[in-house]
Amino acid sequence: MGGFGAEIVAKYNYWIYVLLMMIGFYAMIAKRNLVKKLLGMNIFQTAIILMFVSAGVKHGAAIPILDKHEVLEHGVHAASVVNPLPHVLMLTAIVVSVSVTGVALAIMQRIYRRYGTLEEDEILEKIGE
């Protein structure tokens, strides 16, 4: 028990992201309601964002805003500042995720106007397949 349990506790952030990702993945694949699929997609994307951000955590480090003169004199102590790159990357990923959600919602609206439902089975029935 000790080894495996300790591993889970030590890297709990990654386990949480895996769990969230699986929930999202399940909703995308198994749910037949289009809104639930979209929600699953959002959970899935959020899980990945959490993974990146939690990978950038550094205990006891400050925000990466530096005094120019001090840096020029003493250099940067990497341990004292958080690496901003994962957060910046995830800002972009959030933008991507919002755009995809936006497009999906717009398309969903068109589907709803045409078929009057967002249940995939009922839509397929109305299409006649």
Binding site: M28, M41, F44, Q45, V100, V103, A104, R110, I111, E120
Partner: peptide, 12 residues
């Protein structure tokens, strides 16, 4: 639109 929606899910 439905095909496109399914593509969005798979593509994402």
């Amino acid at each position: 639109p439905l095909s496109s929606f399914n593509y969005i899910i798979m593509g994402s």
